[in-house]
Simulated assay, not measured.
Amino acid sequence: MFEHHGWITICESAADDEDNSRLAEIVERLQHRIQQIDSPYLLDLRWMNGEPFLHMGGFSNHRTSPEILDLFHYVGAIAPGSYGLLHLRDDEDPAHGNEVRVLALVRGSVTEHTEPRLSPCIPTLEDPAAPTGRAER
Protein backbone atom coordinates (compact mmCIF):
# COMPACT_ATOMS: atom_id res chain seq x y z
CA MET A 1 0.00 0.00 0.00
CA PHE A 2 1.27 3.48 -0.90
CA GLU A 3 -0.33 6.50 0.74
CA HIS A 4 0.72 10.14 0.37
CA HIS A 5 -0.53 13.52 1.59
CA GLY A 6 1.19 16.85 1.05
CA TRP A 7 1.18 20.55 0.32
CA ILE A 8 3.55 23.11 -1.19
CA THR A 9 3.47 26.90 -1.04
CA ILE A 10 4.82 27.93 -4.46
CA CYS A 11 7.35 30.79 -4.33
CA GLU A 12 9.68 31.98 -7.06
CA SER A 13 12.44 32.76 -4.55
CA ALA A 14 13.03 32.94 -0.82
CA ALA A 15 13.41 36.75 -0.99
CA ASP A 16 10.58 38.75 0.53
CA ASP A 17 9.92 40.38 -2.81
CA GLU A 18 6.65 41.74 -4.13
CA ASP A 19 7.85 41.33 -7.74
CA ASN A 20 6.98 37.73 -8.57
CA SER A 21 7.13 38.31 -12.31
CA ARG A 22 7.91 34.67 -13.11
CA LEU A 23 5.34 33.21 -10.73
CA ALA A 24 2.54 33.00 -13.33
CA GLU A 25 4.93 31.23 -15.72
CA ILE A 26 5.96 28.79 -12.97
CA VAL A 27 2.32 28.01 -12.18
CA GLU A 28 1.61 27.44 -15.87
CA ARG A 29 4.52 24.97 -16.09
CA LEU A 30 3.27 23.17 -12.99
CA GLN A 31 -0.27 23.02 -14.37
CA HIS A 32 1.09 21.42 -17.55
CA ARG A 33 3.08 18.87 -15.51
CA ILE A 34 0.00 18.03 -13.42
CA GLN A 35 -2.07 17.48 -16.57
CA GLN A 36 0.58 15.04 -17.83
CA ILE A 37 0.29 13.02 -14.60
CA ASP A 38 -3.53 12.91 -14.95
CA SER A 39 -4.40 10.06 -12.63
CA PRO A 40 -6.60 9.18 -9.69
CA TYR A 41 -4.32 11.24 -7.40
CA LEU A 42 -5.51 14.40 -5.70
CA LEU A 43 -3.49 17.14 -7.41
CA ASP A 44 -4.92 20.57 -6.79
CA LEU A 45 -3.00 23.69 -7.85
CA ARG A 46 -4.81 26.92 -7.10
CA TRP A 47 -4.32 30.54 -6.17
CA MET A 48 -5.46 31.66 -2.71
CA ASN A 49 -5.11 35.24 -1.52
CA GLY A 50 -2.73 35.98 -4.40
CA GLU A 51 -0.41 33.01 -3.75
CA PRO A 52 -0.29 29.62 -5.49
CA PHE A 53 -0.56 26.40 -3.49
CA LEU A 54 -0.33 22.75 -4.51
CA HIS A 55 -2.15 20.06 -2.54
CA MET A 56 -1.69 16.36 -3.25
CA GLY A 57 -2.86 13.05 -1.88
CA GLY A 58 -3.50 9.48 -2.85
CA PHE A 59 -3.79 5.88 -1.81
CA SER A 60 -2.92 2.95 -4.08
CA ASN A 61 -2.07 -0.72 -3.71
CA HIS A 62 1.56 -0.22 -4.77
CA ARG A 63 4.02 2.55 -5.57
CA THR A 64 3.67 1.99 -9.29
CA SER A 65 5.36 5.16 -10.48
CA PRO A 66 7.48 7.94 -9.03
CA GLU A 67 5.30 10.74 -10.46
CA ILE A 68 4.35 12.33 -7.14
CA LEU A 69 7.90 12.25 -5.77
CA ASP A 70 9.19 13.62 -9.07
CA LEU A 71 6.63 16.43 -8.96
CA PHE A 72 7.70 17.36 -5.42
CA HIS A 73 11.35 17.62 -6.54
CA TYR A 74 10.35 19.43 -9.75
CA VAL A 75 8.67 22.22 -7.80
CA GLY A 76 11.90 22.77 -5.87
CA ALA A 77 13.87 22.94 -9.12
CA ILE A 78 11.67 25.50 -10.91
CA ALA A 79 10.55 27.51 -7.86
CA PRO A 80 13.39 27.37 -5.30
CA GLY A 81 11.62 29.63 -2.81
CA SER A 82 8.85 27.05 -2.38
CA TYR A 83 8.33 25.11 0.81
CA GLY A 84 6.13 22.22 1.89
CA LEU A 85 5.77 18.72 3.27
CA LEU A 86 4.87 15.37 1.74
CA HIS A 87 4.00 12.48 4.05
CA LEU A 88 4.46 8.97 2.61
CA ARG A 89 3.57 5.52 3.79
CA ASP A 90 4.88 2.65 1.68
CA ASP A 91 4.58 -0.76 3.34
CA GLU A 92 6.65 -2.33 0.53
CA ASP A 93 9.71 -0.15 1.19
CA PRO A 94 12.31 -2.62 2.52
CA ALA A 95 14.07 0.00 4.64
CA HIS A 96 11.04 1.96 5.92
CA GLY A 97 7.98 -0.28 5.52
CA ASN A 98 6.81 0.32 9.09
CA GLU A 99 7.29 4.10 9.05
CA VAL A 100 5.57 7.20 7.81
CA ARG A 101 8.22 9.22 6.00
CA VAL A 102 8.08 12.97 5.48
CA LEU A 103 9.76 14.84 2.65
CA ALA A 104 10.50 18.48 3.43
CA LEU A 105 10.96 20.98 0.60
CA VAL A 106 12.91 24.06 1.69
CA ARG A 107 14.79 26.47 -0.61
CA GLY A 108 14.80 24.04 -3.52
CA SER A 109 16.17 21.09 -1.52
CA VAL A 110 14.24 18.00 -0.50
CA THR A 111 15.18 16.04 2.60
CA GLU A 112 13.55 12.87 3.93
CA HIS A 113 12.88 11.97 7.55
CA THR A 114 10.87 9.56 9.68
CA GLU A 115 7.68 11.12 11.05
CA PRO A 116 8.01 10.29 14.78
CA ARG A 117 4.38 11.03 15.66
CA LEU A 118 3.10 8.37 13.24
CA SER A 119 5.90 5.82 13.37
CA PRO A 120 6.32 2.95 13.81
CA CYS A 121 3.04 2.33 11.99
CA ILE A 122 2.57 -0.88 13.96
CA PRO A 123 1.66 -0.41 16.82
CA THR A 124 1.19 3.41 16.58
CA LEU A 125 -1.42 3.42 13.79
CA GLU A 126 -2.45 -0.24 13.63
CA ASP A 127 -2.59 -3.18 15.96
CA PRO A 128 -0.14 -6.02 15.36
CA ALA A 129 -1.57 -8.82 13.24
CA ALA A 130 -3.26 -11.57 15.14
CA PRO A 131 -1.19 -14.74 15.33
CA THR A 132 -2.03 -17.25 12.62
CA GLY A 133 -2.69 -20.92 13.14
CA ARG A 134 -4.22 -22.74 16.06
CA ALA A 135 -2.59 -23.53 19.32
CA GLU A 136 -1.55 -27.16 19.66
CA ARG A 137 -3.69 -29.16 22.04
Results as ranks from 00 to 15, higher is better:
V102W: 05
F53R: 11
D38I: 06
S39P: 09
D70Q: 13
L103N: 06
V100K: 11
A14Y: 13
H62D: 04
N20S: 10
H5S: 03
A77R: 15
G97Y: 10
G97V: 02
G58N: 04
H96Y: 13
T64H: 14
P94E: 00
M48I: 12
R29V: 02
F59G: 00
E51I: 06
Y83E: 01
R63W: 10
F53Y: 14
T111A: 11
H32K: 12
A95W: 13
A95S: 05
L43S: 00
Q36F: 05
A15M: 09
S21G: 08
H4W: 12
Y83C: 01
H4R: 06
L30H: 07
P120T: 06
E12A: 08
S82C: 05
R46D: 08
I26E: 01
S13R: 14
R134P: 02
F53C: 01
S13K: 14
V27L: 06
L54E: 02
D38L: 10
L88Y: 12
P120W: 08
L125K: 11
L88K: 14
R101H: 02
P80G: 02
L103A: 12
R107E: 12
I122V: 15
R117Y: 09
E136W: 15
P116S: 07
A129R: 14
L69Q: 08
E28T: 13
G97S: 09
R117W: 09
R137Q: 06
H73G: 03
P52Q: 04
S39C: 07
D93Y: 13
I122Q: 13
Q31P: 00
G57M: 02
I8H: 06
G84C: 03
H113R: 14
H62P: 00
R101D: 00
D44C: 08
S21M: 11
R89F: 12
S82W: 07
A135F: 10
I10Y: 03
V106Q: 09
G108K: 11
G6N: 01
D90F: 12
Y74Q: 03
P128G: 03
V100R: 14
R134N: 04
E136L: 15
A24R: 14
T9H: 09
N98M: 07
A24G: 03
T124L: 06
G108E: 03
D127G: 04
E25Q: 15
G84L: 03
D127F: 15
T124I: 13
D93R: 15
C11T: 06
A104L: 13
D91H: 12
C11Q: 12
H96L: 00
L30T: 07
F2C: 04
R107M: 05
N20L: 09
R46Y: 15
I37N: 08
